[in-house]
């Protein structure tokens, strides 16, 4: 038993609470130091202006590092030269855009003035097409399978989600080793084919593995989103269908898929938005977009044009960024429109 300062005699267990109380008071004292300027400020400017004090730090950083760059991006796209500071750069009008867009034939990158850019656009297009459909199908199937589970759901959900958390560099290196000349895949492959293949140095194989690794990396995220959509479908609909004697196949095509469609469309657009921005893991995996330019994507073009060459063409890179930004804007608007439609 211990007598505490409030004069009560409490059992020992509660005395422990009051020692926590002491820590509490210490924290209280420490907080007083932080609190003091805020309290003074409130007395000075009044309660109604306090919310501004709370948003201000976040807004300041946000303005400096996001808003201002967004505005500057457009400025850069219309200037030339190699100076980094905007006010030192000459205005060149649409020159950067016309360079990017001048092509003999848009179907053949080799006829374009900047063939690397158009190669990147083509590569990004096929990557986006395969990656988006592939991820959507794999995620949908996985979500359907997980949704059926009565036990072990959390376990398998965790397994499929785990790669999402890894860093792009780690993912690229793990796969690079798996696909290496001495890698595990070649150990199996050589047994069957009689020879080893350096997968990442062959155009078709490397493109296949870039998409494969990307699906492997991100599918867990989309699985979770689709799974949440599936779980939002009321159970009693299926019970009603069961009583009606609806076959499981019909249940899927006539109930699950239509009810899930808004969710799937949003996932698809999200996938498109993310696919267009492919860079990190593909860049590390293919040693900078190789073999040759088989896996060079638009973001890589922007990054290398602006930062990884001796002549830093910030204007050209920004013009390419603005073009990509426009493509993303269209996709975002589509997504908002779909989201609104789903709500109604």
């Amino acid at each position: 038993m211990a007598a505490t300062d409030d004069g009560y005699v409490r059992p020992a267990r509660e005395a422990a609470v009051s020692s926590g109380d002491r820590g509490d008071r210490l924290l209280e004292a420490a907080m007083g130091v932080v609190e003091w300027p805020f309290t003074r400020l409130q007395r000075l400017i009044g309660l109604r202006r306090m919310p501004w004090v709370f948003v201000l730090p976040n807004m300041a950083l946000f303005t400096i590092f996001v808003f201002i760059p967004v505005l500057l991006a457009i400025g850069y796209a219309f200037t030339g030269g190699t100076e980094l500071l905007l006010w030192n750069r000459p205005f060149v009008g649409f020159e950067n855009f016309s360079r990017l867009l001048s092509c003999g034939s848009y179907l053949d990158p080799a006829t374009c003035e900047l063939d690397l850019f158009w190669t990147a656009v083509f590569n990004t297009t096929w990557y986006t097409a395969f990656n988006a459909t592939g991820t959507l199908v794999v995620s949908l199937v996985t979500a359907l399978v997980l949704n059926r589970l009565t036990r072990g759901k959390a376990f398998f959900r965790a397994i499929f989600f785990y790669p999402v958390l890894l860093s792009p560099v780690v993912v690229a290196l793990v796969w690079k080793w798996f696909l290496a000349r001495n890698g595990l895949l070649n150990a199996v492959f050589a047994d069957m084919m009689g020879e080893r293949t350096i997968f990442l140095l062959e155009v078709l194989w490397s493109r296949f593995w870039v998409v494969y690794v990307s699906i492997w990396f991100h599918m867990g995220f989309y699985t979770l989103i689709i799974l949440a959509g599936l779980q939002a479908i009321p159970r009693d609909i299926y019970e009603a269908a069961l009583i009606d004697g609806t076959s499981r196949w019909r249940q899927f095509w006539r109930l699950t898929l239509p009810l899930l469609m808004p969710n799937l469309l949003v996932v698809l657009v999200l996938l498109l938005i993310r696919s267009v921005q492919v860079f990190d893991e593909a860049w590390v995996l293919t040693d900078g977009g190789g073999p040759g330019t088989a896996n060079t994507f638009v973001v890589q073009f922007i990054y290398e044009t602006a930062f990884a060459t001796d002549v830093r063409l910030y204007g050209l890179a920004s013009a390419a960024s603005v073009l990509m930004g426009l493509a993303l804007l269209v996709l975002t608007l589509v997504q908002l429109w779909l989201g609104k439609k789903a709500e109604n």
Binding site: P51, V55, M59, F62, I64, F65, V66, F67, I68, P69, V70, L71, L72, A73, G75, Y76, L84, L85, L86, I273, Q277, F279, V299, I302, Y303, A306, F307, Y314, A317, S318, S321, V322, M324, G325, L328, T332, Q335
Partner: peptide, 30 residues
């Protein structure tokens, strides 16, 4: 408050790849 919130949300979709160059300029400027 609504303006701030909407502005923030609208940039939720704005990836680094679009503002890479000017964002770096801000970093250099600071």
């Amino acid at each position: 408050s609504t303006t701030i919130f909407v502005l923030m949300l609208s940039t939720l979709m704005l990836p680094l790849s679009v503002i890479m160059v000017p964002a770096f300029m801000v970093i250099v400027g600071l």
